[in-house]
Design a protein around this nucleic acid. Structure first.
Lengths: 194, 194
DNA sequence: GTTTGCGCCATACCGTCGGTATGGCCGACA
DNA sequence: TGTCGGCCATACCGACGGTATGGCGCAAAC
């Protein structure tokens, strides 16, 4: 199981053979197929393991006391940090939707990382810090932005610098939504630019 | 070739067999392997075809005269529309990075859709409409947000409504960056929220 | 204590599919 | 007319996901 996470991370889903997983786990395919429904089932188990690991570490950060803005920003930064881990990036962000199918992946994410982002957005809106934009689309955009930023960070030569830049940009985006609310622009003003 | 795009779109990369592609194109594997280096080469050709098709339709919209803000917003809306097309979504956005590898996918995107987003962001910054945040990360975030929003739209029951919501949210995000610049908040104000 | 049944897993095998090796067909060109 | 090379059809190989079968051990039933 742990070996499966390693192999899926290093070689991807298609590049990982079940024989190799069995060899690393010191079992045979009979045992593997007794515990999992097949290669996809094994992948979903690895997916869940990675997500659970992430969730456990993030939960305490998000649940700490403090104002909504502070905890939201810390949560975003912490999640961005998670997105840098190879296992999370490859298994959850990149191959998850392709291997599991987008619909199943979406439902799984609802219980894990996307749920975190959604509650952060919801908290910011409920406390009136950002405008009353539709919650689901905003959360989905932010989630996509985080994933896109994370993949850039990993591909960067100076990951530390890239990570800080992305973090600042994310905060600027959310701060922009806050500024937009406080200046009280109308919808028309937004679309025309004046 | 066109049949390959259809099959990769409907059944994905792993679910598409070369025999099926050959049958649809009325050729044999000998012919296929004469023109393409293999399954991955075939996928990359399909990828290029889809991207070229997209680029041709978007170029005229972006290149039309008008102020930077207007054309940028129209470009974002138009690209969002492209993201709704099944072929683009599955081949370019979802399976591209997995099949081609993230590094090759990133380089290809640089010539196509990500290039468009990057020039839009660059234009907004150069004309002073949004603050001087680092360009590459901002473009990467916006690109991820667009992709995330598009996948949500496709999964929605009411795609038209979802598309309009996402469009408004995207504009709000960029408008927020504009408001942030005009109110002149400092970095410290951003991170502390006051 | 024996038997029956079941959970657990090892082994051998099959079907599919990506990829290759071989050779035939046909036009260009000397 | 001989031959050389681009183009492609056919037959085949190896790898891999998945399955069928059976053995082993343990616990409940009697």
């Amino acid at each position: 199981m742990n070996g499966a996470v390693v192999l899926f991370t290093e070689r991807g889903y298609a590049g990982t053979s079940l024989d190799e997983v069995c060899k690393r786990a010191r079992v045979t395919k009979g045992a593997l197929y007794h515990h999992f429904s097949g290669k996809q089932g094994l992948f979903e188990a690895a997916f869940d393991a990675v997500e659970q690991d992430m969730l456990g570490r993030l939960a305490e950060i998000v649940s700490q006391p403090g104002d909504v803005w502070q905890t939201s920003m810390e949560g975003l930064r912490a999640y961005l940090q998670v997105c840098l881990e190879p296992a999370y990036q490859r298994i959850v962000l990149h191959e998850g939707p392709v291997v599991m199918g987008y619909e199943a992946w979406k439902q799984a994410e609802e219980r894990f990382s996307f749920g975190l982002v959604r509650t952060a957005v919801s908290g910011l809106m409920d406390s009136g810090l950002i405008g009353e934009l539709p919650e689901e689309p905003m959360a989905r955009l932010l989630f996509g932005a985080l994933a896109g930023g994370a993949t850039m960070i990993v591909a960067a030569e100076d990951q530390k610098k890239a990570s800080e830049e992305i973090g600042r940009c994310i905060e600027s985006v959310v701060a922009g939504l806050r500024a937009l609310k406080e200046t009280g622009w109308t919808d028309r003003a937004v679309t025309t630019g004046q």
